[in-house]
Structures are given as structure tokens and as C-alpha cells.
Design a protein around this nucleic acid. Sequence first.
DNA 1: TCTGGGGTCCTAGGACCC
DNA 2: TCTGGGGTCCTAGGACCC
Length: 422
Amino acid sequence: MPAPPIIALVDCNNFYVSCERVFAPRLEHRPVIVLSNNDGCVVARSNEAKALGIGMAVPEFTVRQIIKKHDVQVLSSNYALYADMSQRVMEVLEQFCPDLERYSIDEAFLSLNGFRSRHLCEYAQSIRATVKQWTGIPVSIGVADTKTLAKVAGRIAKRGGGVSVITRSDEKELASLSVSDVWGIGPAYARSLGQHGIMTALQLRQADNQFIKKQMGIVGLRLVMELRGIACLELEQCPVPKQGITCSRAFSRMLSSRDELEEAVSSYVTRAAEKLRAEHLAVRRLTVFVQTNEFKNVPQHNASTTLRLPMATDTTHELIRAALACLRNIYRKGFEYRKAGVMLTELVPIGQVQADLFDGQDTTQNRGRARKLMTALDSVNARFGSGTLQYASSGIERTWKTQFQKRSPAYTTDWKQLPLVG
DNA sequence: TCTGGGGTCCTAGGACCC
DNA sequence: TCTGGGGTCCTAGGACCC
């Protein structure tokens, strides 16, 4: 019988906070949090901040007392820095194990097939030490037979030691883990399982298949099988093609005029189209949505509309034209809008775009010109900073733009902001 | 009077993830 | 005063067809 596959989950500890600490050692041993766009919600917490009871994803203003009382260090998020640090961590991991799935910005699954079990713990420890030494980022590593069990092991590793290896016969660890801490169990499932007396990961593993299928569908059944050590989720080494691209933001203040919403939507489409071209894709379907403030007792108008384009495109001005048409459809005067967004779906590789049968010679020439313009636009913005060249419809003043009051410098991605020594 | 059933495609909504 | 953003997958139900 072949040995079961062995999966390691490498998870960066408190990733955004750890990135900030690499460049600002004064943040060590102190409570630190990182905030989302517009400094709205807490998206990362140091262990010290967690110990103070600051929850994940809570609005900043709800923990302001704690911040003040304990001198919590507060930072705006700096995604350019985190993406760059993530890349560095992944490159170190690839040196240890080329069979790797980049699962998220701060996590990777590694296939450790072929390692004998008694060496797994040492090997994981050496990965951990090397990542810390070469990048400054602390990681935890969980090792097990399946992805879901490796996630469980990762949870255990974070309790201390940094590495945890569990086997399918281990019951103690599963019994010590709340069902809501299992990968794939969110608040809704945790509640319904709890009502049936299933409180721990071990109880979930022992639950009846039919019951699970009924409560949580096929996804839930797969999850339980994985907890039993039966692999249902493969390591995805080749990045799967993107299904959609979204760009949406809450404004820094409420907007009611159509002109301002048009600026915002234009600039979101511009960003989405840049992502599209970076992936060498074109889009057939575009959705625009607007939202009022759901947290306030004010008149609400949440609406979205979708347009199917006559032909797949990656050209910014074509997409802006389509998006503004959508916006005119859903905009209603007299509401205070808090957020808007653009979603691109039905993506196709740009090389496979079917030429429209009814396209004449003129249109073909226009497409060639548009392609050259987009290439020039992207290279100028890459060279001189994003937003150097932009469409007038995106506005000039843009007082609604997302705010980052406490952002750290782009230490690693901008020469002008390199940290100085001495 | 009698009021099918199965397949496919699409969409909206729910649940989850980081 | 102040509440993120970007994804995935599955399912139920309606429309439509034969």
C-alpha cells in the first residue's frame, strides 16, 4: 500500500503586522493592529493585540477605548509591501519544496511526499527557521495527511512550538478544537451543528454522512472526509484561471451626485481593466453596483446592473463607456451612496477573442489602435507610478478617494521610500 | 374530465475563505 | 463622526425545450 500523501500548511503569523515589524522594530513586543481601506476595520492583530480582546474584522471605532488605554500601535494597510513580502516568503518555500500551492497572500500548502514521518518535524522546523532568517517573517507549520487536517495542525502549531504534525488516529488535538475553528465551518454552520450537539472537530469527524450531506451539502461531506484523513482536495500547483475581477471601494465620504459617482466608477473600471490586461484576459460581461449606508437608518438604495458586451474587450475606454451606461441605469437622485464597484466576469484569454463577423475594416483598425494605446498607457503607469496617465472621466480632485491616514512607507517597492540606515 | 417529466441553462443568493 | 475588499463554490428555482 502506498504511503498516504503528506501535506504541510505554512502560515505566516499575523502576516500584515509581521511585515510592518520587519521594517519597524519598535513595533516588537507591543500590541499592533493593521486597518483596512479607509482605516475602517481591523484586518491584522499582533498576539498582544489579540490578548487585549481586539477581534478580527471589527470596526476600528469600536475598539478605540482599548487602543487608547493600552497604547496600541495602529497602521493603515500597505498592500504593496505585503505583496512583496509574500513573494519573498514563497520563494524561500519553493527552495525547500517546489510542489507548492500558493493558497493566499500568507499561506502555502506543500507536498512533503517521500519524507519519512520521523523526519517531518525536523524538516518543518528548518523551513520555519530559514523563512524567519531570510525574510524576517515568523511562520507556523502544520503537517498531516490532508489539507483540512494540515489546517487543524496549523492551528495547534500556533498554540506554541510553531510546528505540529498530526496523524489520522490523533483524537486529542481534534477534541481540543472547536468546530468553528475548522476550515470551512463559518458562523452559520457552527450554529446549526451546535444545535445538534456537535461542538468539537472530533465530533464533526464522527458525525453521520447522511446528516452532514443534508446540513452542509457535498462541500461539508468532503470536509468531514478530509478530517478522517481521506484526501478530497488536491494540491493546486498551477494557478487556476480567474473567474472574475472586481474593483470596489467605500468612499471616504458619502456621495450623492451622479458626476462624482461617475468619477468613482470610471476609476474602478480603469483599475479593473489594468488587472485584466496584466492577466492577458478580455471580458464579455460587466456589472456595476452602488450601495447606500447599510449601517445607518437612512433611505437605502442598493442596485446593480449587468451588461453583456457585443465582443470581449480589454480596452479601458470601451469598458468605461459600458460602465457609465450601467450606472445611469441604477443611479437614483436623492440617496447618499457609500460604496460602488465594478465586476468583470466571463473572462477569456485575449488571444482567443473572436473577431465579430460584422466588424468592418475600420473596426479592425480601431482595435489595433486601441491595443497600442493600452500598451503605452500601462507601461507609462508602470514606469512612473499608477495614475500618472488616466482618463478625464475619473476626475481630477477625487475627494471621495480612499484614505490611509497611518500608512507605512513602501519600503521594498519604491526606491524613494527605502529605509535609511545610520 | 384529464393538468407530464426530464434535461439544460441561467441567475440569485448563501456560505465560506483570506 | 467612524463599519474592507476580493474571491470561490454550491444550490434552488425559473425559463425553456422536447
